[in-house]
Write a protein that binds this DNA or RNA. Structure first.
Lengths: 119, 119
DNA sequence: CTGTATCCACAACGATACTG
DNA sequence: CAGTATCGTTGTGGATACAG
């Protein structure tokens, strides 16, 4: 615990390679964690199946998010068939490695659930 | 574990009160988690002391972030003295309750640390 | 010391319509 | 089914200067 703190000083103070900044820059957005979470639970999923799971997201935003996640190596996009055209989104190993973060966010949210209006 | 998954279905599918959305909407931003993390480790802190800890943040952005965190009940702002004017920022109980999330983000970042340019 | 005032740039999001 | 095109709004961040 105290060893932990000392290490953090090294990384966080006086360096831009702060581990939290790294994580926050990559997935510190409104929809990224939700998409990852649904893929953790139910993946692989097609575009529309995912969209039904990620309640409230628009097709455009989901498209943007998936593109970004793929770009950073969290998500794989696989073309399953050409006719009819079907794709599947799944997490890479790197994507799955985020599970502890997503779980922690989920657990906190469970305990402090608020209506969207309160946020 | 499987009980967990069933519960998640209830909250995540077909409802906007998804626990992950709740968490992501509140702290799913670039600097919020870092500020919370520094206050967890070193708080309470004055404005400039905090700014030195949160490497790379500008005064304006830190001001914005603190205002937002205070508004949502994560941070307390206390005026310590008028002359010289000094304030202290500290986490509320609600703020401290985010520790598991922040720790998970930190641990992931430690393992996948990348230069800011790579992000 | 603790901020705010400006101004700017770009990212994120949202709604609607439309396409192969 | 799996998206994109378009447009507009808001959010987030960054730089610089200035102020009580």
């Amino acid at each position: 615990m105290s060893t932990d703190s000392e290490l953090l000083e090294v990384w966080c103070a006086g360096s831009e390679w702060c581990p939290i900044t790294t994580t926050a820059t990559l997935i510190g957005k409104k929809w990224h964690p939700v998409v990852i979470h649904r893929l953790l639970e139910n993946g692989p999923l097609g575009f529309n199946a995912l969209k039904e799971d990620v309640d409230g997201i628009s097709a455009k935003v989901q498209s943007d998010v998936l593109e970004d996640l793929e770009e950073h190596g969290f998500v794989d996009r696989t073309i399953v068939s050409e006719k009819p055209f079907r794709v599947e989104y799944s997490l890479t190993d790197r994507g799955r490695s985020l599970e502890p973060v997503i779980v922690a966010m989920r657990d906190w949210g469970k305990e402090h659930l608020t209506a969207p209006d309160d946020q």
